[in-house]
Amino acid sequence: MSDWKPKRFWTSGAVVEADGGYTVELDGRRVKTPAKAALVLPTRTMAEAIAQEWDAQDKEIDPTMMPFTRSANAAIDKVQHQHGEVADMLADYGDSDLLCYRATHPEALQKRQSDAWDPALDWAAEMLGARLVPFVGVVHQSQATEVLQQLRNRVHGLNAFQLAAFHDLVSLSGSLILGFAAAQEWRNPDEIWRISRLDELWQIEQWGHDDEAHAAAEIKKVAFLHAKRFFDLSI
């Protein structure tokens, strides 16, 4: 396998206005996505974050150190062309939301779930107009059609950049409600991430710490927090 990496070919990057938003220029040449589309960004703050990533590159370009660039590329090259399909896939989480499936035992875990998850469901009922109902057990039980449609409409209302970030907020947490809660700043994203991992943290308390599982969880946490930052930059 080749270890070739593209070399830095520019001296400095700059944010400039473009049709429909902002873009980044490298020595006057506008950056394009991997699919050769124009990198047009919805806000100047997002463009500035991406320009900083390009300026931070040394002799070789390391895409792993450019998370905002990668998220913007995904929004333009993928999500923008599959918006409806992506929105529907994420909206489907509402009918099997993590927060709605409660433990049958022990009582201590049931109480912890109720204390952490009920406030999120209450927030969604008030702020999103969507009351999801919790159940005991893991057998699927459908939520009310009108509630799911309300949530679906909200997901479809996100633009491609917001939806790219929202994808990770929902899929990493396992909860459509927590995705909205993070996007709309119900609580700080670190706390929302901990709420999403309540069951895993309970298992750690019972059975002990696993280094491999912890490392995987930390990678997901970093991705979740990045998704929140990218969502904020899209507004």
Rank of each mutant, 00 (worst) to 15 (best):
W123L: 01
W123N: 05
W123H: 03
W123D: 04
A124K: 00
A124D: 00
A125L: 09
A125H: 11
A125C: 14
A125R: 11
E126I: 14
E126M: 10
E126Q: 15
E126W: 13
E126K: 15
E126F: 13
E126C: 10
M127Y: 14
M127S: 12
M127R: 12
M127D: 13
M127E: 15
M127P: 08
L128H: 08
L128E: 04
L128N: 00
L128K: 11
L128R: 05
G129I: 00
G129V: 02
G129S: 08
G129C: 09
G129T: 02
G129Q: 02
G129F: 01
G129R: 01
G129M: 03
G129D: 03
A130T: 06
A130L: 02
R131G: 08
R131K: 14
R131L: 02
R131W: 09
R131Y: 05
R131I: 10
L132I: 11
L132N: 08
L132P: 11
L132C: 05
V133H: 11
V133G: 07
V133E: 15
V133F: 09
V133P: 07
V133Y: 04
V133K: 03
P134W: 04
P134H: 12
P134F: 02
P134Q: 10
P134G: 03
P134S: 00
P134E: 07
P134R: 01
P134K: 07
F135V: 14
F135D: 10
F135A: 12
F135L: 03
F135G: 07
V136C: 14
V136T: 12
V136F: 09
V136R: 08
G137D: 07
G137L: 01
G137R: 02
G137H: 01
G137E: 05
G137P: 03
V138G: 12
V138T: 15
V138A: 13
V138P: 06
V138E: 13
V138Y: 15
V139S: 15
V139E: 12
V139L: 06
V139W: 05
V139A: 11
H140W: 06
H140F: 01
H140E: 12
H140S: 05
H140K: 04
H140T: 05
H140N: 06
Q141V: 06
Q141F: 00
Q141R: 06
Q141W: 05
Q141I: 07
S142P: 07
S142E: 10
S142R: 14
S142Y: 05
S142H: 00
Q143Y: 08
Q143F: 12
Q143C: 11
A144W: 10
A144D: 15
A144T: 15
A144E: 15
A144G: 09
T145V: 14
T145G: 03
T145W: 08
T145E: 15
T145D: 01
T145P: 04
E146V: 07
V147N: 00
V147Y: 09
V147K: 04
L148S: 15
Q149Y: 01
Q149F: 07
Q149H: 05
Q150I: 09
Q150Y: 02
Q150G: 13
Q150W: 02
Q150A: 01
L151I: 06
L151Q: 01
L151W: 00
L151V: 05
L151E: 00
L151A: 03
R152K: 02
R152C: 01
R152W: 06
R152D: 07
R152H: 09
N153H: 07
N153G: 13
N153M: 02
N153T: 13
